[in-house]
Simulated assay, not measured.
Amino acid sequence: MSITFTGDAHQMQNSANQTAACCGELESHLKSLSFVQDELHAAVVSQGAGNAIYNTLGNAHTSGLSLAGTLQQIIDALNVAGVQVDAQDMEGAAHVNAVLGADGHVDGGTWANSAAAVSGFDTSKVDVSSWK
Results as ranks from 00 to 15, higher is better:
73 Q>C: 14
25 E>Y: 13
27 E>F: 13
79 N>D: 05
130 S>L: 06
60 A>E: 12
98 A>V: 15
14 N>R: 12
38 D>I: 12
87 A>E: 08
68 A>W: 12
33 L>M: 09
59 N>Y: 09
48 G>K: 11
91 E>H: 15
34 S>F: 02
37 Q>P: 10
25 E>I: 10
6 T>S: 05
65 L>Y: 06
49 A>Y: 09
28 S>H: 15
29 H>R: 14
122 D>M: 08
100 L>R: 04
65 L>K: 12
52 A>D: 11
101 G>P: 01
120 G>S: 00
74 I>K: 11
6 T>M: 06
68 A>V: 13
92 G>V: 09
82 G>D: 02
24 G>R: 07
64 G>I: 01
97 N>D: 04
76 D>I: 02
44 V>S: 04
42 A>M: 07
74 I>R: 04
67 L>D: 05
19 T>D: 00
117 A>P: 01
52 A>Q: 11
96 V>F: 01
93 A>R: 13
90 M>H: 12
82 G>R: 05
84 Q>W: 04
12 M>D: 03
45 V>G: 05
27 E>P: 12
60 A>P: 09
69 G>E: 07
54 Y>D: 07
64 G>N: 01
52 A>N: 11
14 N>K: 10
71 L>G: 06
100 L>C: 08
35 F>W: 04
115 A>Q: 04
28 S>M: 14
130 S>I: 13
18 Q>S: 07
107 D>K: 13
1 M>N: 13
65 L>W: 05
66 S>G: 04
83 V>E: 14
83 V>I: 02
115 A>C: 03
3 I>M: 14
67 L>E: 06
103 D>T: 13
17 N>F: 08
38 D>R: 06
24 G>C: 07
15 S>D: 03
86 D>R: 07
50 G>Y: 07
80 V>A: 15
57 L>H: 12
94 A>G: 03
9 A>F: 03
75 I>W: 02
74 I>S: 08
31 K>A: 15
60 A>G: 13
77 A>R: 10
15 S>G: 06
77 A>W: 05
23 C>V: 05
11 Q>H: 08
88 Q>V: 10
57 L>I: 10
71 L>Q: 03
28 S>K: 15
102 A>T: 14
110 T>L: 08
4 T>A: 11
112 A>T: 06
132 K>M: 13
61 H>E: 11
38 D>F: 07
93 A>C: 15
80 V>S: 15
22 C>H: 12
119 S>P: 01
22 C>L: 11
90 M>F: 14
67 L>K: 07
119 S>M: 00
113 N>M: 10
40 L>I: 09
3 I>H: 13
85 V>P: 00
125 K>Y: 08
64 G>L: 00
69 G>A: 09
105 H>M: 05
88 Q>D: 14
105 H>L: 11
102 A>L: 09
96 V>G: 03
117 A>Q: 01
127 D>K: 10
38 D>C: 02
24 G>V: 05
66 S>I: 02
103 D>W: 06
83 V>A: 12
98 A>H: 09
1 M>D: 15
19 T>V: 02
28 S>G: 15
119 S>I: 02
26 L>S: 13
91 E>S: 15
41 H>M: 10
120 G>W: 01
66 S>K: 00
104 G>H: 01
55 N>P: 10
65 L>D: 09
71 L>P: 06
